[in-house]
Design a binder for these strands. Structure first.
Length: 709
DNA sequence: CTAGGGTTAG
């Protein structure tokens, strides 16, 4: 093969060339054009090995020397296989680079995780004055979107407009995707609305983008527009819509989609949709439906398990979540990072410390990478299980921390009443130039409130707007009200609420009411009663609080009025429920529970403790019993409380001196708090109890909350 | 050539 082809002559020459390359291995000979066609087909099918063999053969027979056409095809082949090192070498050797070659290189880098290189190459191409075409932009825009390079992305957008390619549907769709990755749904929507032509991808991009940008409502709106335009959907559309339903907790449209999937089973029977349906049902609090679907899936993959495990976890049934996790192993499925993170969350919510710890040690043993997300989950798990030192160890050993990791540590110190440590961590975070967000500020303010650090809390609240540029939300106001309220500055707290520009939410009023109970301020409570009645509270907490305040004054008529209101509104107090872990098994006790195997022992243990405490001068405080029954019955009801059952069970089944860790779903009642303090002294046990608000570390007859909770 | 799908942390 002699002679050098110039770019312009390339095509023509190929058509006229008759030179054949000998292929020694099989005796065939091929023309340059035939080689090119084969390369093209390997490029399209990403047949790397075959292409590589052809490359070797072409090198051996000298076909590549000075052959711009074949070298271009070869570079494109490597680029499409994601072998950018090989592609780049050939690319550098090619003198006459055409758009085809540039495009393949840009695509190769964009699709193999080197977006930055992809953009740089585009800049070079653009700078050389090469004509970009409709095949260039989709990848450049993808690269900008993936890297969140907003400025560069906008600039490229401008170049798209100048080039006149903006009306190309692929380019247009890529622009939509890019702006949605930037979180700029306004721009994406404007472009979408102005598109002359839209295909299914355009609609799907809008739907999944609205879902990702936490606007599921608009995602459904786009779907309705689609329906009006008489368009049909595909699997991608359905996945987006199912996520939207999950986000909106919209069971009805979710079910309708499920029906649609069933009716078109042939087309939509895939694991993605099955898992999305499981996720949708569990997000919509229809865990039983989710489970039914899950059980019907024959070939469960890790994601199926994860969806179901996290479904239980998020619907508050961590117990079942852990059971399913164990079942996962017996059925031969393997967990991944998502499983671990989900299960650690479940461990935290029911204080399964031994369970969580064994997962942690498995991770270490198996050399599983403890990355930021897993590390943060561990911090949270240990802190929720009452072992802050372990949280801190994980935190200190984490190679990379992000805002969430810092927040978890701040929140951990906070719920354990260690306000100073929480503030120290918060400031260490600031010193690392990490900008605080709403979440971490809520945690640090709540830490101040649990520890009674008034000045510090007020100072941080003030800095929110002046330094951190975070607008206080109702959660922050409620922390501050809580803080002032605990310190007895009820008037100041009330004034703060009145000074708010936004309408105070129910949790803010609840915080103030709770302070009224602590300081037994009946006058203010009477004023707040109206607020409590007006607001459509889903929980019964504020009513109980109000009732307790009146009960303490022995104003039984008022207690009855509050109780009547609860009945009228059809609210129910959720049953108290406590968890305690013994020998790697978590045991759950409901109030008055008699279902446990050891029930007889538990109740006789409680009777025994009751006797001993009474001898020591303990007098039951029945004021928190919400029901109108005789005093003796009330006293009995107190001894049925779930945390006492859990404590008694733990006392029976653990060695003397072992710390007892308990988690309760409600606030600990006054009498249980007193009794637990006494038990800690009487039985020489440290008892760490987490209630709905915070931790109580009981030791030697005292509690870390100093009786403010 | 574009979206490309499901499950995860404060």
């Amino acid at each position: 093969m002699n002679g050098t082809f110039t770019h312009k002559l390339l095509k023509q020459s190929l058509l006229t060339t008759t030179t054949h390359f000998p292929f020694p291995q099989n005796g065939f000979t091929l023309t340059s054009q035939q080689c090119g066609t084969m390369l093209q087909s390997f490029t399209n099918t990403k047949s790397f090995t075959k292409g590589q063999q052809l490359h070797a053969q072409m090198t051996t027979c000298g076909a590549l020397r000075d052959n711009n056409y074949l070298n271009t095809k070869l570079a494109a082949f490597y680029a499409s296989c994601g072998r950018m090192a090989e592609a780049q070498l050939i690319f550098d050797e090619i003198e006459l680079k055409n758009s085809f070659l540039w495009n393949f290189m840009i695509r190769g880098y964009a699709c193999s995780g080197c977006s930055l290189k992809s953009i740089a190459l585009y800049r070079e191409m653009f700078g050389f004055g090469w004509k970009t075409d409709k095949f260039t932009y989709p990848f450049v825009l993808k690269a900008c979107g993936d890297l969140l390079l907003v400025e560069i992305g906008r600039k490229v957008h401008g170049e798209v407009v100048v080039s006149g390619l903006v009306s190309d549907i692929y380019v247009g769709n890529s622009l939509l995707a890019m702006y949605s990755k930037f979180g700029d749904m306004g721009m994406a929507r404007m472009l979408f609305d102005r598109m002359l032509e839209r295909d299914l991808t355009s609609w799907n991009t809008m739907i999944s983008s609205y879902v990702k940008n936490e606007n599921p409502k608009e995602a459904l709106a786009i779907f309705y527009m689609m329906g009006k335009a008489g368009l049909s959907v595909d699997g991608t559309t359905l996945l987006g819509l199912l996520s939207a339903c999950a986000g909106l907790m919209a069971l009805k449209p979710g079910k309708a989609l499920h029906c649609y999937v069933i009716r078109n089973r042939a087309e939509f029977s895939n694991k993605f949709l099955r898992n999305a349906l499981i996720g949708m049902y569990s997000s919509c609090n229809s865990i039983a439906y989710a489970r039914r679907l899950f059980d019907e899936v024959k070939l469960k993959d890790t994601v199926s398990w994860n969806s179901m495990i996290s479904g239980y976890e998020q619907s508050g049934d961590a117990f079942e979540s852990l059971r399913l996790f164990c079942k996962m192993f017996t059925e031969g499925a393997g967990p991944d990072e998502v499983t671990i993170v989900t299960v650690l969350g479940a461990c935290g919510s029911i204080t399964a410390l031994q369970f969580g710890t064994s997962i942690h040690s498995c991770l270490v043993k198996k050399g599983f990478c403890v990355n930021t997300i897993v590390g943060t989950s561990l911090i949270d798990m240990y802190s929720k299980c009452g072992t802050l030192t372990c949280s801190r160890r994980v935190f200190d050993e984490m190679p990379e921390k992000n805002l969430v990791s810092w927040s978890a540590m701040v929140a951990g110190y906070g719920v354990h009443g260690k306000g100073r440590e929480a503030i120290a961590i918060f400031h260490a975070m600031i010193a690392k130039n990490i900008l605080p967000d709403e979440g971490v500020l809520t945690s640090v303010l709540s830490a101040c409130s649990h520890a009674g650090l008034i000045n510090e809390g007020r100072q941080i609240f003030h800095r929110m707007t002046t330094e951190y540029n975070v607008k206080p939300t109702s959660a922050h106001y409620s922390c501050l009200v809580d803080l002032l309220g605990r310190a007895g500055r009820l008037d100041e707290a009330y004034e703060l609420i009145k000074s708010m520009k936004a309408i105070p939410t129910s949790d803010i009023w609840a915080a103030l009411l709770s302070a009224c109970r602590l300081h037994q301020n009946v006058n203010l409570a009477e004023i707040l009663e109206q607020k409590v009645f007006e607001m459509n509270l889903k929980g019964v907490g504020s009513y109980i609080c109000l009732s307790n305040i009146y009960a303490a004054e022995k104003r039984w008529d008022d207690v009855e009025r509050v109780r009547a209101m609860v009945r009228r509104k059809g609210l129910k107090k959720p049953p108290g429920c406590s968890f305690v872990e013994v020998d790697k098994m978590v045991h759950r006790f409901l109030v008055g529970d008699r279902s446990h195997q050891q029930t007889e022992y538990i109740y006789s243990k409680l009777e025994d403790i009751n006797q001993r405490l009474k001898e020591a001068g303990y007098k039951p405080d029945t004021s928190s019993v919400f029901y109108d029954v005789g005093e003796e019955v009330k006293e009995k009801m107190l001894w049925d409380h779930s945390e006492r059952l859990a404590i008694a069970f733990a006392l029976i089944n653990t060695n003397p001196g072992t710390t007892i860790r308990i988690t309760k779903n409600l606030r600990v009642c006054g009498d249980c708090h007193t009794v637990t303090k006494l038990i800690s002294k009487l039985m020489c046990r440290e008892i760490i109890m987490r209630d709905i608000h915070r931790f109580h570390h009981f030791k030697d007859g005292f509690c870390s909350c100093s009786d403010y909770w």
